[in-house]
């Protein structure tokens, strides 16, 4: 039997998967919606905002708690591009690839990130420093090309600007490392 199946079989609906406090937030989100099957998407949102991504354990727990078949939960989680099944980097860079941003050269931004950091959309740097994502349209087309850096929308981006933002994350992490060698 695969490791995956073994892990999934350990999960039931009664107990939260671990004593991690974040599960209480998830459980509360389910209760708020009456633990109904229709609460699935809202619940997945709460798992992702608490844990950063959805793993098999979380999916199995949500499925059992809301009494929804496993495959259906997996189907929903993979249908919506907002949900991530893999852990994300410490920092998060989203580049808009909507029409307005595309016309204003957002492809060049992605090329820059690939060139300098060897990172393609959907991936995370090997040291887990940051993930690169693309978005459809941030609704900030007036200041295209736009992106989101750790939750902050920035507009009128240039390759140099993206580079300096990403470099500042890297610098901050090397600074932290020298402070606390582990």
């Amino acid at each position: 039997m695969s490791v995956k199946t073994r892990a999934i079989r350990k999960i039931d609906a009664v107990k939260v998967p671990s004593d991690d406090k974040r599960w209480l937030i998830v459980a509360a989100a389910m209760r708020k919606h009456g633990s109904a099957q229709s609460a699935l998407i809202e619940t997945l949102h709460s798992v992702q905002s608490s844990f950063g991504y959805l793993d098999d354990i979380a999916l199995a727990f949500v499925a059992h708690s809301l009494r929804i078949p496993l495959s259906k939960v997996y189907g929903v989680a993979t249908f919506y591009s907002h949900f991530r099944l893999k852990p994300q980097g410490k920092h998060n860079c989203v580049i808009c690839m909507g029409t307005a941003c595309y016309i204003k050269g957002s492809v060049k931004l992605l090329q820059k990130v690939d060139q300098k950091y060897g990172l393609k959309v959907g991936n995370t740097t090997s040291d887990n420093q940051f993930s690169l994502l693309e978005a459809r349209c941030l609704g900030a087309c007036g200041i295209a090309p736009a992106g989101i850096f750790d939750g902050r929308v920035l507009g009128n981006l240039s390759p140099a600007l993206v580079e300096s933002q990403l470099d500042s994350w890297l610098k901050e992490s090397t600074a932290n490392e020298t402070k606390s060698p582990s």
Binding site: I8, L59, A63, K72, G75, T78, F79
Partner: peptide, 15 residues
Amino acid sequence: DIAGRGIQSQLISDL
């Protein structure tokens, strides 16, 4: 169930 969407859709069982 079907996982993913569009041309990436695939049939999956359980998780």
